[in-house]
Design a protein around this nucleic acid. Structure first.
Lengths: 231, 231
DNA sequence: AGGGCTGATTGATGTTTATCAATCACTGCC
DNA sequence: GGCAGTGATTGATAAACATCAATCAGCCCT
């Protein structure tokens, strides 16, 4: 592991509060691997052998069933993923692939479970991480059930704008086809949804968006009264 | 609290492994309340003051946004709900109402958090409960994103049949309008979905269903390769 | 037994979304 | 610069789903 990244991983909410020596044991038992773009890291149904921590790059979690597939989450560095499968020692419910070249810390699932039992702070952080993830999914599910596609896009834009500093400008990091899949629609419909939002306070120029009329956008997208949790 | 129900609550995965005296402290600080049917227990956006344990009756968790609303989960006894909001000390993301007269144990959220910090077994059980809940939601979200309505119904029938003993017969406990909302469709479309399944191995007689051709039903509904977790 | 309620079903129609096909815009490459 | 390749967009059509309206079946009344 390089000098620069250990502190960054150590600052993750998941590992931040635990004992230093326990954290060292986790690092010592893990592998930092480099993966090329478009590589499948694991597939749905496999047994969960590693907790993954994306150190650098970009990863897509997706699920497939009945031929179709859909992206469940876009993982940005630095963050861990598929904690729930590791904790429960059960098969993955999602597949993962790199979108770009990525460096990933692989922590053996057995080691994670062992250290959780040993270090209460780690257990508490795990519990909290799972609770926050649970709430994210509740939001995602209600979004999918209650809003139609252009409204979902509007809400995503509002959230991104907040996360990107509240300047009224939003830059889309992911390809639009990926964004479409995340929002549960086709790329064609995403295009049209952007068109719709053009009449509700959003200006689109490629991957660069501008909110020109927040009130109009909010009236259209009706964001949740409860704002997304801070992780 | 009556004599008969304490053991039942104590057998909940959440409380089963913890220390007896800690469990007693939780019970001592909680209230067992009786609620009439159709009563709203709490609403989305409120601060989470209590962990709820449904002892007897039936409760609906639902979310609403933009005028519309949708049921997120039907809670059957004996089980706890709304654990994630309690753990994170954040506002509810769902509302809850009784469907029938219900008895519910209300455990003050502060007390839950305090006892979690004190009793590692309780923390571990909480962690596990959240991880399993997380996985349930992943399944629900992929189901919603990847399958169309009749397929979702088919899968629900297959799951229910398993849970009800694998005899090929399924009895629907909830009203169909509620089932429709849980599946993210209108009651009208649920009716039509039953009609569709009639040609794929399902026989419908009111709330009593029979799977007459499991292979056909599975071919149509394409159940997940990973079976629902045991809780 | 008759009337009124509630939930389920059925049919007709409209909206939303997906699919199919074509074109456009951009990038990298030789 | 020209040209393939990829992703985004646009238009036409079809499928899935919602909505609206009407009817039906069961149930509780008194």
């Amino acid at each position: 592991m390089r000098a620069g990244e250990k502190p960054e991983i150590s600052q993750l909410p998941l590992f931040r509060e635990m004992g230093d020596s326990d954290r060292e044991r986790i690092f010592a038992g893990s592998f930092l691997q480099v993966f090329p773009p478009q590589l499948t890291l694991f597939e749905l149904g496999q047994h969960a052998d590693f907790l993954h921590v994306l150190v650098d790059g970009l990863v897509e979690l997706y699920a497939s069933s009945a031929g179709r597939d859909t992206t469940m989450r876009i993982v940005e560095p630095v963050s861990s993923f598929i904690l729930a499968a590791v904790v429960t020692d059960m098969p993955y419910l999602m597949s993962a692939r790199t979108l770009v070249a990525s460096r990933i810390l692989l922590v053996p699932a057995r080691l994670v479970r062992e250290m959780i039992r040993q270090d209460v702070s780690l257990m508490e952080a795990t519990m909290r991480e799972l609770a926050l993830g649970y709430r994210d999914l509740v939001r995602a599910l209600t979004d999918m059930k209650l809003r139609q596609s252009a409204e979902r896009l509007g809400n995503l834009i509002l959230q991104q704008e907040l996360r990107q500093g509240g300047t009224g400008k939003v830059r889309l990091r992911a390809e639009k086809r990926l964004l479409a899949s995340l929002l549960g629609m086709t790329p064609e419909n995403l295009s049209r949804a952007f068109g719709v939002l053009g009449q509700h306070g959003v200006e689109v120029d490629g991957a660069q968006l501008k909110i020109t009329d927040r009130a109009a956008l909010e009236a259209f997208a009706r964001p949740d009264p409860v704002k997304p949790d801070e992780h």
